[in-house]
């Protein structure tokens, strides 16, 4: 419990970075990371939900009876997911079209529920915010990185610009679902190699 706020924040960026270390929330990780833009958009949406639900769960933790806590978490999370969905439709419609069904699915992203249950329900407001923010930023970075790798290899483009020139034959495997698994596995492998040193 002696961790500082900064530590709560930074643990989400490397030590416990969600998709790689906790291997949580893989559905959107594999589903939407065909481009970096999609990955980051999804990551930001999840971060928003994560921070807001952590705040509310932390504030209400004294009032929520332990027996119905999961139901309460789901109500809180679902509310914020709907907020994100409506706001995204109103202000970033092209992104909403691309992310489509994955936005409502943030409700069942076990990362969000996991942090509410494992952290926010047991901790004060400030550490909970730091935890949510850290986890969210880590999640966004992971999705962005995975999206960037898949976009560059799979289409030869990066943010709409050609990287390798016209002679590059796109490695289409990378933008399909199996490519997501392979790419995630390789990145996990790379992180473990770096981490074990």
């Amino acid at each position: 419990m002696a961790k500082t706020v900064t530590q709560e924040f930074t643990k989400g960026l490397w030590e416990e970075i969600a998709p790689f270390r906790l291997v949580l929330g893989l559905c959107p990780v594999l589903g939407v990371t065909t481009t970096m833009e999609n990955g980051i958009g999804m990551g930001l949406a999840t971060t928003f939900v994560l921070v807001c639900s952590n705040i509310l769960v932390s504030i209400l933790r004294k009032f929520i009876p332990a027996k119905v806590r999961i139901a309460c978490f789901i109500v809180i999370i679902a509310t914020f997911v709907t907020v994100v969905e409506l706001l995204m439709q109103a202000f970033a419609y092209p992104l909403f079209l691309k992310l489509g069904v994955f936005i409502p699915l943030i409700v069942v992203n076990c990362l969000v529920l996991g942090r509410a249950e494992a952290f926010a329900f047991k901790n004060k407001l400030i550490p909970s915010v730091a935890d949510g923010l850290g986890m969210g930023v880590g999640f966004t970075l992971s999705l962005g990185a995975l999206g960037a790798v898949r976009e560059i290899l799979g289409t030869g483009m990066f943010l709409g610009m050609s990287v390798f020139g016209a002679s590059y034959e796109p490695f289409a495997f990378m933008v399909q679902a199996p490519g997501a698994f392979v790419c995630l596995g390789l990145m996990l492998c790379g992180m473990n190699i770096i981490g074990s040193k």
């Binding site: 209400l60 009032f63 929520i64 009876p65 119905v68 139901a71 309460c72 109500v75 809180i76 679902a78 509310t79 709907t82 907020v83 409506l86 706001l87 439709q89 109103a90 202000f91 419609y93």
Partner: peptide
């Protein structure tokens, strides 16, 4: 009581947001 309060306040919030954004969403569509 907790569940009812939580669900109804979230319902209220979402209804308000929906009415606020509906015309904007239609424009975007």
């Amino acid at each position: 009581v907790v569940l009812v309060l939580l669900s109804s306040s979230s319902g209220g919030l979402l209804h308000w947001l929906k009415t606020q954004t509906s015309s904007k969403i239609e424009d975007q569509q």
